[in-house]
Design a protein around this nucleic acid. Structure first.
Lengths: 239, 239
DNA sequence: ACTATGCATATTATCGATTATTTATTTTTC
DNA sequence: GAAAAATAAATAATCGATAATATGCATAGT
């Protein structure tokens, strides 16, 4: 009997809009899917990851699945407990605050460096991404939240990478992943009342104008406002 | 035929001095060992991780070993290349500089917070660890470098944790791991000419005196000096 | 009624074998 | 004799089965 064969083309059109995840092996693929499921909230905090069940869902063997899960442990999206298997990491507000503070420290510094050292080519790239992003948040279209998520993430990454720093990028990616998860768990995008586009625009314009301080303040404000909104939504339990 | 059984006691006395790694499963155990081997330089940068060979070394089955390796990928100590297996991550000076800058940003901030918010109990703990550390660096004893490594790491961690922040701790741990690797690859401990103990003492005393600025400056200086020394040793190829 | 003990069931951790892919070697062709 | 093609060997990725462990339930004892 032929073993299940895998090819890139087939794998890649599973999810509608996954420019970022270029999966090569089955493990990488399963890893990407699971990470996305955790961040999006499809797999809920505290949920036990029973291998037998997930095997069917991801159409993959037990060992392979375990290997994928293992990676998520190092990213703190999954926690391992002794011989009692794995579960999706729990969440709590204090942790979100902690993540936010650290993210502010790093991202603000990175944006400042970008303003100082960003090349013209970089500015051009930023403009492109900003325009793409604007498309999806003016007006807000709940049907295209996937695309918004993507360009929002790209915008923040690029913003922090005017002076390239791999470790800054990695660290911010990790932190942002977790921020996203909290956001998804708390906020229905349709309920988003604040004008995110205006905030992005402020940051963008400050950067393009070379105004380091203004860019820094706008970035910090943007990150902290998002967190505040998440915390408020938690409080009012508007699930 | 009985399957190879594993018990904690047996596992734990493999390494002389492993207070930190409390391995439960075989995977966790292998993971700890491999991480240590990479950080210490026993597994060299760029070295291919051939599963068949490592299986014998760690006395573990292929799949189990792969699972352990997977975790190291998320920590950037190992890099995966398509269907071509795994290898120990390469090193280069630019990356060390990058790590150092980020580490300074985070650790200095953390130390400042510690000075502001550290409780009396925390100060007491810090004193204990500082004294332990001093034992092993005054005078420097190459036979006890293991212990020095341990207490040095503890000292820095505690220093950054006067105001507890799990994410700061995790991030610094990750960055410090990589710093350590670079240090081990470049510096033979016996060749360490600078007075590390004096630097630690300066930091410690500033913290105890509640002098935030001085503590911050001393911390930054300490981290950067270490990196400079590594870079110099690379240059002179005193391998 | 409540805890404790033992058995059945479910789930996890581990292993060894199988299939797929890459790397090395030889053979063929121009 | 060098490039290309074909083959062989080595290594990686994946799978399914088995042993170890934990969980749930029933029964016995207080």
């Amino acid at each position: 009997m032929a073993k299940r064969t895998f090819n890139l083309a087939e794998l890649d059109n599973n999810s509608q809009f996954n420019n970022k995840q270029e999966s090569k092996t089955l493990i990488e693929h399963a890893y990407s899917l699971m990470r996305q499921d955790i961040i999006s909230g499809a797999l809920k905090p505290g949920e036990k990851l029973r291998v037998a069940h997930l095997q069917k869902k991801y159409e993959i063997s037990a060992s392979t699945l375990r290997e994928a899960i293992s990676r998520l442990v190092s990213e703190y999206l999954v926690s391992a407990e002794g011989q009692r298997g794995y579960k999706v990491s729990d969440i709590n507000i204090d942790e979100l605050k902690d993540i936010t503070d650290l993210r502010v420290l790093i991202e603000v510094k990175a944006v400042r460096e970008s303003v100082r050292h960003g090349s013209d080519e970089w500015k051009q790239q930023l403009t492109e991404v900003f325009n793409q992003l604007s498309q999806f948040e003016q007006p807000i279209n709940p049907d295209k939240s996937q695309q918004w998520e993507y360009y929002n993430s790209q915008f923040h990454q690029l913003l922090s990478n005017g002076k390239p720093s791999p470790w800054t990028l990695r660290t911010l990616k990790l932190l942002s992943q977790h921020s996203e998860r909290y956001r998804h768990l708390a906020i229905k995008i349709s309920k988003n009342k604040r004008d995110v586009h205006a905030e992005h625009t402020t940051i963008y314009e400050a950067v393009m104008a070379g105004n380091e301080l203004r860019a820094a303040l706008a970035t910090e404000d943007h990150i902290r406002t998002t967190t505040e909104q998440i915390i408020n939504n938690y409080g009012s339990k508007s699930n």
